[in-house]
């Protein structure tokens, strides 16, 4: 089924022109982050919450404020529902937003979500009035459960965080798109622009990229590439791709060819 998507992304009643969410992690300098944000066109960027370092140089908050972007605090580094809920509440206090990118991690090698703890935390935060965008596995059933308890979007992974392995199971991402009515934001695993385009072609409403941009050799150029890829994939999805076929299907008509038996021998 082809879903015609409106040109703007709407999550929990808030509208964005850009369908690219940017993670702020991994940029070696705040100046570079600011340039990448501008190049990406992103309007919604993630931030983490950590102990303050009085010696830290520059203020991330000031840079993001100058960039005019909305903040999406994450709960990265939390391994239990309890810790994630606590972090979300601190973030609400720090950033004056009730939006949260909910991450509850299962183990440090894969950084894959812990489904049980994730559901538990999501339920508690939704009940507390948060707009919850959970980072989830590519499991359509879990995505539906998260939406059933009131999450405002789902953020399935393409592959583990920072792996750059792209979308390992495009089929499941398509199933998630069919399973839920809220926006689907492909999160984690994006390696390069074609991965972002594929996510959009599969029907995702947006893509989140962090390491793919911040750890690229030229982050600003990659930010620009991701912006273009998300737009291209979104357009292509709306345009409706041709069906795949095993054999060729000529695009030039067979009729009207001349009688080649009359052509002079020896001329090629």
């Amino acid at each position: 089924m082809i879903r015609r998507m409106p040109d703007e992304l709407t999550i929990a009643g808030r509208t964005f022109h850009s369908r690219l969410l940017l993670g702020t992690g991994g940029f070696p300098a705040l100046e570079l982050l600011a340039e990448a944000i501008a190049a990406s066109g992103s309007q919604l960027v993630t931030v983490a919450l950590r102990r303050i370092d009085p010696a830290a140089r520059g203020s991330l908050i000031d840079v993001l404020s100058d960039a005019g972007v909305e903040l999406l605090p994450n709960t990265a580094g939390c391994y239990t529902a309890r810790d994630a809920v606590f972090t979300a509440k601190l973030a609400r206090e720090a950033f004056a937003t009730d939006w949260v990118k909910l991450e509850v991690i299962g183990d440090e090698d894969t950084l894959l979500p812990d489904a049980v703890e994730l559901l538990r935390a999501a339920e508690e935060l939704v009940d507390d009035g948060f707009v919850v965008l959970p980072y989830t596995t590519d499991d359509p059933i879990l995505a539906r459960r998260l939406v059933d308890i009131g999450c405002s979007a789902v953020m399935p992974l393409g592959s583990p965080i920072g792996s750059g392995m792209g979308i390992r199971n495009p089929y499941n991402i398509s199933l998630i798109r069919e399973a839920v009515e809220v926006p689907v934001v492909l999160d984690a695993g994006i390696g390069t622009a074609s991965d972002a385009a594929l996510a959009m072609e599969l029907g995702c409403d947006a893509v989140m990229a962090a390491s793919a941009i911040s750890r690229a050799q030229d982050p600003v150029s990659m930010a620009r590439a991701m912006c273009a890829a998300v737009q291209a994939g979104h357009l292509a999805h709306g345009a409706g791709r041709i069906p795949r076929r095993l054999y060729a299907n000529p695009s030039t008509p067979e009729e009207g060819l001349p009688d080649f038996s009359q052509s002079a021998p020896g001329i090629s």
């Binding site: 992690g25 991994g26 102990r51 303050i52 991330l60 994450n74 920072g162 984690a188 989140m208």
Partner: peptide
């Protein structure tokens, strides 16, 4: 005492 830090 916590504050914003870069993070995905």
């Amino acid at each position: 005492v916590l504050t914003a830090m870069q993070g995905g």
